[in-house]
Simulated scan of single mutants.
Amino acid sequence: MDLDNRHLEEKYTQKPLLQVGPQLRALNLQVASIVHSSIQPLHMLSLLKDMEKKFGAESKPWAQFTINKGFSALEKLLKDFAATYASGNVSADVFLVADIEQSVERFGVDMSKFPTLSRLYETYKALPEFQASSHQRQHHSQPSTT
């Protein structure tokens, strides 16, 4: 766990990011690892621009393939654990919510292949916290030209 997460764990002890039990803690760390290493990098605009320059239109199908591979792994991992949230509370969901949203919107990933992740995503979309933090509701400042 990195320093930012440790800080959050210590400051907000009433809602820990990781569960106490070793099985659920390991599950959450696996989810975070899959998202962080195989899905999230594809949402970085600088990487996408570089891919489009080098590979043109071929970059989108490659990104869809890679995201589908990551979502397949997550679907298998979570299908027996997921309740209202991925692992019983919101810890793994912190890693999933934005990446599912971006994968659907930016790459047109078909979530019908992933029933567990689709159900979780519908749960996220109903949360006021998700609605407030959605990228569409964020104010993007324009870089200064001076």
Rank of each mutant, 00 (worst) to 15 (best):
M1K: 07
N5T: 13
N5W: 08
N5F: 10
L8V: 06
T13E: 15
Q14I: 02
K15M: 10
P16F: 11
L17H: 05
L17R: 08
L18W: 15
V20R: 12
G21W: 08
P22K: 13
Q23A: 15
Q23I: 14
Q23H: 13
L24Q: 15
L24H: 14
L24T: 15
R25P: 06
A26F: 06
A26T: 12
N28W: 06
L29V: 15
L29W: 09
L29E: 15
L29R: 15
L29P: 06
Q30D: 05
V31Q: 09
V31R: 08
S33K: 09
V35R: 04
H36A: 14
H36W: 00
H36M: 09
H36Q: 12
S37P: 03
S38M: 02
Q40F: 13
Q40C: 06
P41T: 10
P41K: 06
L42T: 01
L42R: 01
L42D: 00
H43Y: 06
M44T: 03
S46K: 15
L48A: 12
L48K: 11
K49M: 10
K49P: 01
D50G: 09
D50I: 04
M51E: 04
M51K: 07
K53P: 00
K54A: 14
G56L: 05
E58C: 04
E58A: 13
S59W: 09
K60V: 13
P61E: 04
W62D: 01
W62C: 03
W62G: 00
A63L: 04
A63S: 12
A63G: 06
Q64S: 05
F65H: 11
F65R: 14
I67E: 04
K69D: 11
K69Y: 11
G70C: 10
F71H: 03
F71N: 04
S72L: 05
S72H: 02
A73K: 09
E75H: 08
K76T: 13
L77H: 07
L78K: 09
K79H: 14
D80W: 02
D80H: 10
F81K: 13
A82S: 12
T84V: 10
Y85T: 05
Y85R: 07
Y85V: 01
A86F: 07
G88Y: 07
N89I: 04
V90R: 10
S91K: 00
D93N: 15
D93I: 07
L96R: 03
L96V: 03
V97E: 02
A98Y: 01
D99S: 14
I100F: 05
I100M: 08
E101V: 00
E101C: 04
V104I: 15
V104L: 12
V104M: 14
E105A: 11
E105C: 05
E105Q: 09
E105W: 00
F107C: 01
F107E: 00
G108Q: 05
G108L: 04
V109H: 05
V109E: 02
D110A: 04
M111G: 00
S112F: 06
P115T: 01
L117G: 07
L117W: 03
R119I: 00
R119M: 03
L120R: 02
Y121Q: 02
T123I: 05
Y124C: 07
K125D: 02
A126I: 08
A126R: 14
A126M: 13
L127Y: 00
L127P: 02
F130Y: 15
F130A: 05
F130T: 04
Q131T: 13
S133E: 08
S134W: 07
H135R: 11
R137N: 11
R137K: 14
Q138D: 03
H139Y: 12
H140N: 08
S141I: 01
T145C: 01
T146H: 00
